[in-house]
């Protein structure tokens, strides 16, 4: 009986295929579509997580601009950096050191920055006696990828303090922040470098208590910038939307999920690379 049903199904499918000609492509019709605004988010989370968190904000921006918004990111910092410097994003969320490169390569305009400054937190086991980078001499310090903001902060400070020589701090780079934390938990690293908004994840490790031991100097935080090609009216509209993002539900939820309190106006001098290095002791 099942076989008969299967045969009938097969015949129906064959007839439908013949009727449709070349498959699903034949069912689509050509129609011009307005090009969407590309919104790049730097890969500080997995791509699907970025989609989940920034999707609602992208929808809200699209409604606000009356234009589709294509939310994009990358799986690694190097690709994102290349796309950013190639001007592939109309609107981009990035950390200060990425902005320094992007602003040098493209005409990006600052829309606003997160109110909270960015600092690299050094996290280790609760029982570990680690109060300064010097205490990590001869040990392994796990870090996120080289181009991550906190990595650059920590590396600047280590270089300035001449703690990258033999017998000093041994740095190992990991693909994600989670693998940095795991490196500390499984003992392959003595400590790891993390941004402030990840610290609440440490509670998940109940069998191995972790805590932030100290942090680097802080620099102005994560920022949103838009390409000047969008035109002044769009840039103005976007800046207004960014600075009031915490007032719309999607924006409020996004900021709250990272423990951020909102975007504030920012100036290019705050993100000048010399200024940033000066802040971290360079």
């Amino acid at each position: 009986m099942r076989s008969a049903t299967a045969r009938r199904d097969a015949l129906r499918l064959l007839a439908a295929s013949l009727a449709m000609g070349a498959g699903p492509a034949a069912a689509f019709t050509l129609e011009p579509v307005e090009p969407p605004l590309t919104f790049g988010v730097f890969p500080f989370l997995p791509a699907l997580e970025i989609g989940r968190r920034f999707g609602p904000v992208s929808t809200a921006l699209a409604e606000m601009l009356g234009r589709p918004v294509a939310l994009q990111t990358k799986t690694d910092f190097e690709s994102f950096h290349r796309f950013l410097c190639d001007g592939r994003y109309d609107l981009a969320l990035m950390h200060p050191f990425l902005y320094a490169d992007a602003a040098a390569a493209q005409d990006f305009r600052l829309l606003g920055r997160i109110r909270e400054d960015l600092a690299a937190f050094i996290v280790a086991g609760k029982a570990d006696n680690c109060r300064d980078f010097k205490d990590l001499c001869g040990k392994v310090l796990a870090m996120p990828p080289r181009l991550a903001g906190v990595t650059q902060l920590a590396m600047h400070e280590l270089e300035e303090r001449r703690l990258l020589g033999p017998g000093d701090v041994r740095v190992e780079f990991h693909r994600t922040k989670s693998s940095c934390i795991h490196a500390v938990v499984n003992g392959s690293a003595a400590a790891c470098v993390l941004p402030g908004f990840v610290l609440n994840q440490l509670k998940a490790f109940t069998s191995f208590e972790l805590e932030p031991k100290f942090h680097t100097q802080a620099v102005p935080g994560i920022l949103l910038a838009a390409h000047a090609r969008l035109g002044e009216p769009t840039l103005k509209c976007l800046q207004e939307a960014v600075l009031t993002l915490d007032r719309i539900p999607a924006g409020h939820n996004l900021l709250a999920s990272f423990g951020w309190t909102g975007f504030v106006p920012a100036t290019p001098t705050q993100y000048d690379i010399a200024h940033l290095r000066g802040l971290v002791g360079g």
């Binding site: 492509a25 069912a27 019709t29 999707g55 609602p56």
Partner: peptide, 26 residues
């Protein structure tokens, strides 16, 4: 090339699925 799905003429076995991130269509 450019296409727009016509959901009213779907044959057996054909699926049209919206890809979205949260509520945001990708």
């Amino acid at each position: 090339s450019t296409f727009e799905p016509d959901t009213s003429k779907l044959a057996k076995g054909q699926r049209i699925v919206d890809i979205s991130a949260g509520s945001h269509k990708l």
